[in-house]
């Protein structure tokens, strides 16, 4: 019986270690593979004329003008973050494919993690009893 418990502990512990390692230095190489800055920016922006497409995927006038704009700005030597920031300022939150974390989206961002931890606490509570 004792042996069994140890087994289980070791097992979970080793997983935990792997998990820590993985989270510790997440997505460094990830960014490198995208060479094309335009694409990198364009996929973050929503095409405001289309339905559910981003600027990269779409060929509408809006998207083409945005892509041209990004190209110009990149040539001027602006970096990715600034370009997105400028466009965000000009067109509002809607243009960002991923909603920014701010007052009106706290609920959106917190809920998933709240539910997950709630379940975890519930489980711990049940285990204790």
């Amino acid at each position: 019986m004792l042996q069994q418990i140890n087994f289980v502990k070791i097992f979970f512990f080793s997983f935990f270690i792997v998990f820590l390692f993985s989270v510790g230095s997440a997505s460094e190489n990830d960014q490198e593979r995208i060479s094309d800055d335009i694409m990198k920016i364009a996929v973050e922006l929503k095409c405001l004329e289309c339905e559910g497409q981003n600027v990269y995927e779409s060929n509408s006038n809006f998207s083409q003008s945005i892509k041209a704009y990004i190209r110009e700005e990149l040539k001027k030597g602006k970096n990715t973050k600034d370009i997105i920031h400028d466009l965000h300022k000009k067109y509002g939150d809607e243009i960002l494919m991923t909603p920014p974390v701010q007052a009106n989206t706290y609920a959106l961002w917190i809920l998933p993690f709240f539910l997950l931890s709630f379940g975890f606490i519930l489980l711990l509570f049940k285990l204790k009893r």
Binding site: E44, K46, N54, G92, D93, E94, I95, L96, M97, T98, P99, N104, T105, L108, P112, F113, L116
Partner: peptide, 18 residues
């Protein structure tokens, strides 16, 4: 009347832990 977009990245981020 605030307009935001919830795109694929959001879903990837929140679904990944699950």
């Amino acid at each position: 009347e605030d307009r935001i977009t919830v795109g694929p990245k959001y879903f990837n981020i929140v679904i990944a832990p699950l």
